[in-house]
Computed example of a mutant assay.
Amino acid sequence: MVQALRRKGDKEGEVMWQYVLNCLGRLRHEGMSDEEDAVETTLSEGRETRIQVRHVTELSWRHPSFRRLFEMVDRTREVEDTIFSRQGRPPIKRIRVDANPAKQRSPPTGLPTSFFEPGHLQELAKYPYQIDDLKLSKKDFPLHEVPDLPDF
């Protein structure tokens, strides 16, 4: 995406996708949502239809702005024709779901404080060793607003 936007001369888009890459690099695999295959049943014209979907588990400790950011990343296939062709099978619908607290993945160490949902850090602050275990980054990392994508 960075290269495609650079070729188009879209500086704003290029900066946004550099930001996405920066966030992904900092979150690493451990900071990403878990995914599970599921089946969704819909009713259309009196008929039940079952479709394959993917449940993407939200991480309660992650700052809420990441939800919108990753929704934008997921929808890029729908809006970016220069990279993604519309041939072959359609992509599996991704549905964001809240995590069962018992199955919640812990955050990776070394993240900036801005990556956390503020209430999460406040809760951990009751037990200072838990904050210490996170080895929070000393570097500031400002979070950006994610632009709206058109509805399809």
Rank of each mutant, 00 (worst) to 15 (best):
G31C: 04
S65M: 11
R50Q: 13
E36N: 07
L27Q: 07
T57V: 15
V56I: 13
V73K: 00
S44T: 12
I51R: 15
T42F: 04
L27V: 04
S60E: 12
M72E: 02
D74C: 00
G46A: 12
E71M: 08
T49K: 11
E48V: 08
E48Y: 14
L69A: 12
V73H: 00
S60P: 02
T41V: 15
H63L: 04
L27K: 06
A38M: 08
W61F: 07
T42L: 12
L24K: 05
S33Y: 03
R26Y: 13
R50L: 09
T49S: 09
S33A: 15
T49W: 12
H29Q: 12
E40R: 13
R67D: 02
F66N: 03
M32Q: 14
E30W: 04
L24Q: 11
E45K: 13
E71P: 01
R77V: 04
R77D: 02
V56E: 13
R68D: 08
T49C: 04
S65E: 13
I51S: 14
L59S: 03
R26M: 15
P64N: 07
Q52D: 09
G31H: 07
T76Q: 13
D34H: 15
V53A: 04
S33E: 09
H63S: 07
L27H: 10
A38Q: 13
R67N: 10
H29F: 05
E48C: 08
F70R: 00
R50E: 15
V73A: 00
G25L: 03
S44C: 08
I51Y: 02
R47H: 11
L59N: 06
E40S: 12
L59C: 09
E40H: 10
F66D: 06
E30V: 01
R75T: 00
E71H: 01
R68E: 11
